[in-house]
């Protein structure tokens, strides 16, 4: 079959709702875009472990500590599901990690903000995982089989992350005036970055049409953002916290909130590497990789020795 016919069959398959599997023919642009998206997604999961890992030793009690440990372990797992899914497209995981550590690959802008207080752990679970769920439930319906299946697994697990974060915020909001102020401060700092992490507005987002047709992207950034805001604002009100958007209004006619202006300059600065923690995150990731090298070498040597001993026996 020539390329035009292949492409026609490929698009018909996607339109019918069938999944594309690793060995199926696919256009180069589809493969490239998936590698870019999936690896960024994988990187976001493992970089996301850093701001939360920051609070494991200082969790306020054992229950919270066990929960946070489990959550951070889940993020590692999510990274691994996703790296495993990207590898089905014939990419080497080492190459992907190299791109991350040298700053060539991107990860979610949100993880370049610092976790200054314990309330930030609540805000991340509630807002960041909340926003991620909106995005990921859409991606679970995407056309690439391995990515879609990884998303289904991840979505099942994210719900715990979201709820534990809200529970932290609720406890603080019902606590002393200082604790409530701490919760409000975390919401004030994380709200806009969470709203922005869903990506630039549709008019600033190139290539969307083809990606939608190929079901690489399922919904526009603005549509996902609207859903996130609609669900989250009442959750904040319920626990007596206020979303830091003076211009936000509720439109009775559409049933949606209209948000104030988003500072996209800040978003693009963070993406470019100029956020508060970009340098620290990359440094910590690279160091973790270097510090783990001896473990990988030892395991490789041990495996080689086992094979040798078995050969002698």
């Amino acid at each position: 079959m020539d390329d035009a016919k292949q492409l026609e069959a490929f698009e018909a398959k996607i339109a019918s709702g069938a999944k594309i599997e690793p060995k199926d023919w696919m256009p180069e642009a589809y493969r490239k875009q998936l590698i870019r998206m999936m690896s960024q997604h994988a990187h976001s999961e493992i970089v996301g472990m850093l701001p939360e890992g920051n609070w494991i030793t200082r969790a306020p009690n054992l229950r919270r500590k066990a929960i946070l440990l489990a959550k951070v372990q889940d993020e590692a797992g999510h990274g691994l599901y996703l790296y495993s899914a990207v590898e089905t497209l014939g990419v080497d995981r080492t190459e992907l990690l190299y791109q991350l550590h040298t700053g060539k690959a991107k990860y979610s802008s949100i993880f370049n903000y610092p976790t200054l207080t314990w309330a930030d752990i609540g805000a991340i679970g509630w807002l960041v995982d909340g926003a991620a769920i909106m995005n990921q439930t859409a991606l679970a319906r995407g056309s690439y089989g391995p990515y879609s299946r990884a998303m289904v697994r991840i979505c099942k697990e994210e719900s715990f992350h979201n709820r534990q974060g809200y529970e932290i915020m609720m406890s603080l909001a019902q606590g002393t005036p200082e604790q409530k102020a701490m919760a409000q401060d975390a919401l004030d700092r994380w709200w806009w970055p969470a709203v922005m992490m869903l990506g630039p507005s549709d008019d600033k987002s190139p290539n969307s049409d083809q990606l939608m047709k190929w079901k690489v992207k399922m919904e526009s950034n603005d549509a996902i953002r609207e859903r996130f805001i609609d669900r989250t604002v009442p959750q904040a009100e319920f626990i007596g916290l206020k979303v830091p958007d003076a211009d936000m209004t509720f439109d009775e006619k559409t049933g949606h909130y209209t948000h104030g202006e988003i500072n996209w300059d800040e978003f693009f600065e963070v993406i470019k590497g100029n956020g508060p923690c970009n340098a620290k995150r990359l440094k910590d990731r690279s160091e973790a990789d270097k510090k783990g090298a001896w473990v990988r070498e030892a395991a490789t040597a041990y495996a080689a020795k086992q094979i040798k001993e078995r050969a002698i026996a």
Partner: peptide
């Protein structure tokens, strides 16, 4: 799937409950 420098890839199959077949879930190194 290639063998990269992070050890060989192994495909993983899980049996969710007794009596049902093992199902592919992903891979590990």
């Amino acid at each position: 799937m290639s063998q990269d420098s992070q050890w060989p890839v192994w495909e993983v199959f899980l049996q969710g409950n007794p009596g049902i077949p093992h199902k592919h879930v992903g891979s590990v190194h």
